[in-house]
Amino acid sequence: MNEGAIVSIVAMLGWLVLAGSALASFKLGWSRIAQLALVWLAIFAGLFVVADLLGARLPT
């Protein structure tokens, strides 16, 4: 594993901690958090499907 990959993993973990603490500050119940997670998952999955149907490709 190269140094860039390690930095990316550490940065991603930091962002997850930051997002998790922000979510915890709202004091939502577990069922509400699960509901919001499913809604966001559906949004991103829908956008992925639309982009795939339109033939969008990431630049390489």
Rank of each mutant, 00 (worst) to 15 (best):
A19S: 13
G29D: 12
S31V: 11
V49S: 03
T60L: 15
S8R: 08
P59C: 01
T60R: 15
S25P: 04
L18A: 12
N2A: 09
M1G: 09
R32T: 09
L54S: 02
A22Y: 12
F44N: 13
R32C: 04
A24D: 12
G14I: 00
L18N: 08
W30A: 13
L13Y: 02
G55N: 00
A19H: 13
L16G: 07
L16N: 10
A24I: 07
A45F: 14
L28H: 04
W30R: 11
L36M: 12
L23A: 10
G29Y: 05
M1D: 01
M1T: 02
L54F: 11
S21H: 15
A37E: 01
I9P: 00
Q35A: 07
P59Y: 02
G46C: 04
L13V: 03
L38R: 07
F44K: 14
I9R: 05
L36W: 09
Q35D: 05
G46L: 04
P59G: 07
T60G: 15
L53N: 04
M1L: 05
W40Y: 11
A42T: 06
I33K: 06
V17T: 14
A24N: 15
L53I: 06
S21K: 15
L58Y: 01
R32I: 09
F48C: 07
L38A: 11
R57T: 12
L36F: 13
S21N: 11
W40P: 04
I6T: 09
L23F: 07
A42M: 06
L53M: 09
A5H: 05
V10I: 08
